[in-house]
């Protein structure tokens, strides 16, 4: 009974994992095209770099510096009203997402290789291949 249970559970877990792989592979993953969707507005990196410019921040946890377009400037660029009253969900091409506050957005940048970085948040928040920023 116990032996059968072990095989059954293992088979079930493998099935779940394979099904998840098929699902993930079947769902159309967003592709980073040089532009991102910010609150329904499509903005492209070239435009952001030219019109906003870049800053360099230093992350206190990883002890690394990151250069990019300030995230708060991007939000202002697309015309979000009362940005301080919202949270922001940053979504990567693989579906990985993190929700941050306006305060964090004020100390974050979108780098040239399409990754977000923050001054005071750990690397888990540095979403890669950003395709979308949702205003929550």
């Amino acid at each position: 009974m116990k032996r059968n249970a072990l095989m059954l559970v293992a088979s079930l877990l493998l099935l779940v994992s394979i099904a998840s792989n098929l699902y993930v592979g079947g769902v159309e993953n967003s592709v980073s095209t040089g532009c991102i969707d910010v609150n329904g507005v499509k903005v492209c990196f070239i435009e952001l770099y030219e019109k906003i410019g870049t800053v360099t921040i230093h992350n206190s946890i990883t002890n690394e510096s990151y250069t990019g377009v300030p995230l708060y400037s991007i939000i202002q660029f697309v015309g979000v009203n009362e940005p301080e009253k919202h949270y922001y969900t940053i979504i990567g091409a693989d579906g990985y997402r993190k929700t941050v506050s306006w305060n964090d957005m004020k100390s974050g940048v979108l780098t040239e290789n399409n990754r977000v970085a923050f001054e005071n948040l750990p690397k888990a928040f540095m979403v890669r291949d950003v395709v979308k920023i949702e205003v929550v």
Binding site: S17, S20, N21, Y23, V24, V27, G95
Partner: peptide, 9 residues
């Protein structure tokens, strides 16, 4: 979650 469950394979 789907990614997490998939990556465990």
């Amino acid at each position: 979650m789907p990614q997490i469950l998939a990556r465990g394979l």
